[in-house]
Every structure is written in structure tokens, then in C-alpha cells.
């Protein structure tokens, strides 16, 4: 069996197949990167809206709450399908890849928003009171006190989520996006051994997610273990 697999390696890794796998890996990487960046950006905005006490933000706060509570509870595949078929029903001519980008960003935003909110809320209220009596504005309190103390709580789970999220992008294959899992399926249906094909796919997923996991661990060491904050509770 092993000798059979070894003999198949040169047949599998032809230039055409390697380019197919690399293109698919690039798509997985793009889906992950866009999802992470947009999720982080809008996740922050949503969490700030949810933490605001000003009446002017109440409608936004309610929308943010509904958004986060619903989308965190819906499987990614369902969200993907809703966007995919919803776009068709509404007559939008959007590519499957664009649908996958939108879906990953929408889901990532909901999860990151909740992690960020929990991190920001974990900063002791007494720290904010100290800032308030010294006439810090809401922005100054956020920028100088809350955010620096919340970072060590926010970043490790966010990066943990991102690593899981990279794996979730495999579901984009269900709407025909040529990402890594889909590339594996294609090569497998061409007659290559499933063990060999999915072994190669596994290695590529690892190559994409491992640096992110290491970067998260690095930030955790630098920030999480830092003595420069005293969170009230972990997330």
C-alpha cells in the first residue's frame, strides 16, 4: 500500500496539479485573511456600539445585539447557503467566491464582536471611574485605559477563533468555490488516492494556519502574560 502511494506521488504533483492546489490554497488564505481583517474591524465597531450607554446609540446597540446573537447561532454553511441562494432569488449576479467572502466576513464579524465585547467589559469598572473623575472623555477612557487593558484578553481568543475559522472556509466548496477542500475533491475524483490528496491538503491547511497560531501565541506571551493589566475575569 505504502509503495503504491509513494509511486503515485510524482503523478499527483505535476505542475498542473500543483498549480491547482496552490491556487486553491491562495483562495483559502484570501477567504481567511479577508474574514479575519473585516471581522476584526467590524467586530470592534459592533462591540463598541454594544458597550455604549448613550441613548443615541441604542438603535445601533439593538441591531448589534440581534446581529451577534443570531449569526453566532447559525451554522456557517446555512449562512453561506442563504447568501448564495438569496443573491440568486434577488437577481444579483454575484460570483460564488464573492458570496464566500461576504459570508465569511459576516460570520467572523459576529464572533469577533462577542470576543471583543467580553474583553472590553472585563476591564474593572473602578478603572473607568478613576478615568471619569479625572475628566477623561469616553474616547480618552477607551483609548488610554480600556483598550490597552483589554488587548491581552481579546487577542488570544481572537487568534484561536481565526485558526478555527480557516478550517470553516472549507465549507465554501459547497457553493463551488475552488478552495483547498474543493481542490482535494477534484484531484480525488481524477483517480488519485484520497490518502495522498487529502494528506497534501492537510499539509497546506497546516502551512496556512500554523503561522497564525504561532503569531497568536506570541501575542499571548507578550500581552496576556504582561503584568501591565489586571482583568476582572477571563473571557
Amino acid at each position: 500500500m505504502l509503495s503504491f502511494l509513494i509511486a503515485e506521488i510524482p503523478r499527483l504533483f505535476t505542475i498542473y496539479n500543483v498549480i491547482l492546489l496552490l491556487k486553491a490554497a491562495l483562495t483559502t488564505l484570501s477567504l481567511s485573511a479577508v474574514g479575519c481583517v473585516i471581522g476584526l474591524f467590524f467586530g470592534f465597531l459592533l462591540s463598541i456600539a454594544r458597550l455604549s450607554h448613550r441613548p443615541i446609540f441604542w438603535p445601533l446597540k439593538a441591531l448589534a445585539l440581534i446581529y451577534v446573537e443570531i449569526l453566532r447561532r447559525v451554522p456557517f454553511l446555512i449562512t453561506l447557503m442563504i447568501f448564495f441562494f438569496g443573491a440568486q432569488v434577488l437577481g444579483f449576479n454575484i460570483s460564488a467566491l464573492a458570496i464566500a467572502f461576504i459570508s465569511t466576513s459576516v460570520i467572523s464579524t459576529a464572533f469577533v464582536a462577542e470576543i471583543v465585547r467580553a474583553g472590553l467589559r472585563a476591564v474593572k469598572p473602578s478603572q473607568m471611574e478613576a478615568a471619569a473623575v479625572m475628566n477623561f472623555s469616553a474616547w480618552h477612557s477607551f483609548w488610554h485605559v480600556r483598550l490597552p487593558q483589554a488587548w491581552p484578553l481579546i487577542l488570544p481568543p481572537v487568534f484561536g477563533y481565526f485558526v478555527l475559522f480557516i478550517k470553516d472556509t472549507a465549507l465554501a466548496s459547497q457553493v463551488g468555490v475552488l478552495e483547498l477542500t474543493q481542490a482535494g475533491k477534484i484531484l480525488n475524483t481524477k483517480g488519485f488516492s484520497a490518502s495522498l490528496v487529502y494528506g497534501a491538503v492537510l499539509i497546506l491547511y497546516f502551512i496556512i494556519s500554523y503561522p497564525l497560531a504561532r503569531f497568536g501565541a506570541y501575542l499571548e506571551r507578550r500581552l496576556g502574560a504582561s503584568r501591565h493589566s489586571r482583568p476582572r475575569r477571563a473571557i
Binding site: S126, Q127, H228, R230
Partner: peptide, 18 residues
């Protein structure tokens, strides 16, 4: 009013990140 007064808290409330 807060420009004119300052308070020292029982639990200090120093900013932990500074």
C-alpha cells in the same frame, strides 16, 4: 467641578497599564 476636585480611592484605582 471635576477640574476643581480630585479623589483618592480606597482601592487606589491606579491604571494597571501605565
Amino acid at each position: 467641578s471635576r477640574d476643581k476636585l480630585a479623589i483618592v480611592f480606597q482601592q487606589y484605582n491606579l491604571f494597571g497599564n501605565m
